[in-house]
Simulated assay, not measured.
Amino acid sequence: MQYSKDMFEFIPKEEKNYNRVVRPSLTYGQDVWRMLRKNKLAMGGLVFLIIIILAAIFGPMLSKYSYTAQNLDFADIGPSAQHWFGTDKFGRDLFVRVLEGARISLTIGFVASALSVFIGILYGGISGYFGGTVDNIMMRIVEAIYAIPMTIYVILIMVVLRGGLNSIIIALTISFWVTMARIVRGQIISLKEQEFVLAAKTIGASPLRIILKHLIPNCLGPIIVTLTLSVPDAIFQEAFLSFIGLGIAPPLASWGSLASDALGGYQLYPYQLVFPALAISLTMLAFNLLGDGLTYALDPKTRR
């Protein structure tokens, strides 16, 4: 068959661009960041957290005061140009101690949450993937731990381990992994019957590889959100333990221990209580705002 120009019709330029993809292709991470940037409250929380982390890292190093140095001649002095947050009963600069407290509190929050996420992912992944008897036994253990109020056995663990930074991290890790395990288990159960899991089984992938390489990456949304919300919970638990005398031991300072030290004289020197309490409150608020923003940004149903 012979073809000629008369047999064809040229499409106008406007019609050719109808199906043109105007928006550039984005990766999952880029799309999440795009959605997160639209949430001003979440971005405000993220900026505040970056500032407080940088201040905790570099602030004590750049200050001319030490968080342990005592000078009784300057005891209980209110906020001034020389001491921005005032001094405590031993004449120690409260601004440096709040920054040092941020180091301790944030370290506990991040490390305890990261360890609990690691344990919870493995435990929940194995339980959800294998199911049956394995799932029943593993979940009965989780339910037994979950039935006891977290504060009670955290306090018991702290009494046995006799306080300290490592002891607090261990106690919080033991108590926090349960929630992550239940979340991951639920996600794995909903995903393990999908076609991509069947394809992985067909090519001979081991159960551990399927869990780590195929199922866990598809659960990252809930995992990241839970991690973001568990950090302020760990900070608050540490502050509570330090407040009742089971946390950080002197001369180390955390926000909870600073608040505990200031409690006796808060009527005469309220600033000693206000600044560490404000640091705890603002940090927890920032984490919660960021967590709420990530909840929407990581949900495919809300992304446009």
Rank of each mutant, 00 (worst) to 15 (best):
S281R: 03
S206E: 09
L285G: 00
S80D: 09
N39T: 10
I188P: 09
A42F: 04
I137Q: 01
S281P: 07
A55P: 03
K5S: 14
I168A: 02
S167Q: 12
R23A: 04
G291L: 03
S281I: 11
A75K: 13
I203M: 01
G59E: 04
Y296H: 11
D292M: 10
G247V: 08
D261C: 05
R182T: 15
L273D: 08
Q272A: 05
L289T: 01
V134F: 11
Q237F: 09
G293T: 09
V134C: 09
A253K: 10
R37F: 13
Q70S: 10
W177K: 15
Y3I: 13
A81C: 02
W255Y: 05
Q272R: 14
T151A: 07
G78P: 00
I216H: 00
F240M: 06
G265L: 06
D76H: 03
P79T: 07
Y269A: 07
G264R: 13
L212E: 00
V22L: 03
L54H: 09
T87V: 12
L227G: 06
K192T: 09
F74P: 01
K16W: 06
I119K: 10
S80F: 12
S175G: 15
Y123G: 08
V22P: 00
P300K: 12
G91Y: 14
Y3F: 08
L198K: 10
L99P: 10
T151L: 06
I155G: 08
G109L: 01
R182G: 15
V111W: 05
L54E: 10
L282G: 02
D292R: 14
I77K: 15
R162Q: 14
L298G: 06
I148L: 14
Y129P: 11
F118E: 04
L246W: 12
I145S: 07
I145C: 11
L122P: 04
Y271G: 00
E100T: 14
W255R: 03
I52M: 09
R303E: 07
S167L: 06
T228Q: 03
F90Y: 14
T133A: 13
I148K: 04
S242H: 04
K13T: 09
G204T: 05
P149Q: 10
Y3R: 11
N19K: 10
T151I: 15
A114G: 12
M35G: 10
A75M: 07
P270N: 08
I104S: 01
S80T: 13
I148S: 03
M1T: 06
L246F: 14
Y65F: 14
V111S: 01
F287N: 04
A42D: 02
V160W: 12
R97V: 00
G78K: 06
L106P: 00
T173A: 12
I53F: 06
Q82N: 12
L62R: 08
T173D: 06
R92K: 14
A181T: 15
F275L: 05
V184Y: 13
F130E: 01
L294G: 11
N71S: 10
R140L: 02
I104N: 00
G124E: 02
F236P: 00
W177L: 15
Y153N: 09
V98K: 09
I108T: 04
L208G: 05
A42L: 03
I155T: 12
V159C: 04
P276N: 04
F118K: 04
L273Y: 08
D88K: 07
I210Y: 02
